[in-house]
């Protein structure tokens, strides 16, 4: 699409939606949100960018092949599941590391993996469809 307005606005959209997606990812810990919806929102930013500037430009801006992002995300999620072995628990048992008021968990790592998996998979798909037409 050849629209100056959209092309300029899309740069802000990418930033805005990426930030919002991270917010959603972290918010999902205790409230509605999470890795899946975060990944979708993040991908939406790049989809707008691809519509405005073409998928090649979006690929260049992204730098990393979305398929690599997706498979790394799956790998991260798998590692989060495997980490339960360190604590002698069953596969995918959520384990927590609590230091004062900071609570770290393998659950959030899993969610981050989901975020990347969804983000990468959606963009792979959209780029493929864009380029096939």
């Amino acid at each position: 699409m050849n629209s100056l307005l959209l092309s300029v606005a899309s740069r802000f959209f990418v930033t805005l939606l990426l930030m919002f997606s991270v917010f959603m990812l972290l918010r999902g810990h205790n409230l509605p949100g999470g890795g899946f919806i975060g990944g979708l929102i993040g991908a939406a930013g790049f989809i707008v960018y691809a519509i405005a500037n073409g998928s090649q430009a979006a690929r260049r801006t992204l730098r990393i092949d979305p398929r690599v992002i997706a498979s790394s995300g799956v790998g991260i999620a798998l590692l989060a599941g495997l980490s339960a072995a360190l604590f002698g628990k069953a596969f995918f048992t959520g384990t927590w590391l609590i230091a004062g008021s900071i609570k770290l968990s393998t659950v959030i790592i899993f969610d981050i993996g989901v975020y990347f998996a969804v983000f990468g998979a959606i963009l792979t798909l959209v780029f493929a469809l864009e380029e096939a037409v």
Partner: peptide, 10 residues
């Protein structure tokens, strides 16, 4: 096999 899939893709 799941981990193998991830690694062989990368």
């Amino acid at each position: 096999p799941f981990a193998t899939a991830v690694l062989s893709f990368l």
